[in-house]
């Protein structure tokens, strides 16, 4: 660890804690913690409790998972779309990360800038862009018809395909950051050794490199899956109301039908899965590494 203190420094610390008992650095942490506690965590707990109190106390809302086809279908659709998005984004992300690993440093820097710009362009703008491209009279259909390749516009939007395109495109940078962090930690001499011992480049990739990137693949998959679960804007815009995922369903429950209980139940399930998977993710790769890439 970079910050292992010297013995003298440690003694100084011990002295400081003995003499004053109270470490003044707590005063720096307190405002943020109190704000998050009072205006963030408390409201979340408050909402989650509604899942067992609204409209009446009990587990009635949770029973709906088994009794209501709408809710069961909704959960299944969300999981299915998130799994497809994860597989697609991690595969594409792997291709980019692998190329970045082997690119010259100035090329890699250029690729990284593109990645960060796309990462920071708002989800709203990106969904809007796909709306213009994929629509019935969108630019892609116009182009294909103009070229005479098709006579009828293809249904690229207002269906699962459109939602998957939008979600995957958004998630690729999320997949790349942990994959790249993992790949950069692999000693390049390992693959050189494999090559010099007579393995073909395909053998080296599949039997040496790929297994070494397993932690990166798992971390990237978890991160993308977790982040996809809460997708709201993209399905709402590209699904055109036909491909509802949990987040959009929650918003309809709150703003249109005003049924907090069901919405809170779904929120509880979502938050429990997100935090549990985040815990697992943290075991494969420290969260600071995963999110740290964003800040480079």
């Amino acid at each position: 660890m970079a910050r292992a203190p010297y013995k003298g420094a440690r003694a100084l610390n011990v002295m400081a804690t003995r003499t004053s008992r109270f470490n003044p650095y707590w005063l720096l942490v307190a405002p943020a913690v109190l704000l998050v506690l009072a205006l963030y965590v408390a409201p979340i707990v408050n909402v989650l409790l509604l899942s067992v109190t609204d409209p009446k106390p009990g587990l009635g809302n949770y029973v709906k998972i088994f009794e209501s086809d709408t809710v069961a279908n909704l959960i299944w659709r969300t999981i299915r779309l998130c799994l497809i998005t994860t597989a697609a984004a991690v595969t594409l992300g792997y291709v980019v990360s692998y190329a970045m690993l082997h690119a010259l440093s100035h090329v890699r820097r250029r690729m990284m800038s593109i990645l960060l710009i796309s990462f920071w362009i708002s989800v709203l703008v990106r969904s809007f862009a796909w709306l213009m491209l994929l629509g019935h009279n969108g630019l892609i259909n116009d182009l294909l018809i103009g070229l005479g390749l098709i006579s009828e516009p293809l249904p690229l939007m207002r269906n699962e395909l459109g939602v998957l395109i939008g979600m995957t495109e958004y998630m690729v940078p999320y997949a790349i950051l942990p994959l790249l962090a993992n790949m950069q930690g692999i000693d390049p001499r390992v693959t050189s050794a494999s090559r010099s011992l007579g393995a073909s480049s395909a053998q080296t990739f599949f039997r040496v490199f790929l297994p070494l990137t397993k932690p990166g693949i798992i971390a990237a998959s978890l991160l993308v899956f977790i982040s996809s679960l809460g997708f709201y804007v993209t399905p709402a815009i590209l699904g055109g109301g036909k491909v509802q995922m949990i987040a959009e369903y929650i918003s309809v429950q709150l703003l249109v039908t005003v049924r907090w209980g069901v919405a809170a139940m779904l929120a509880t399930l979502m938050i429990a899965s997100v935090l549990a998977l985040m815990y697992v993710l943290n075991r494969f790769m420290k969260l600071s590494v995963v999110f740290g890439g964003v800040a480079r």
Binding site: A32, P43, I246
Partner: peptide, 24 residues
Amino acid sequence: AIRAFLLLPLMVPPIISAMAFYRW
């Protein structure tokens, strides 16, 4: 634990943050 606690707003899906703020 406190560090993880302070990262919560980033980890919780935005729709749930929205619900919580709305009600509070």
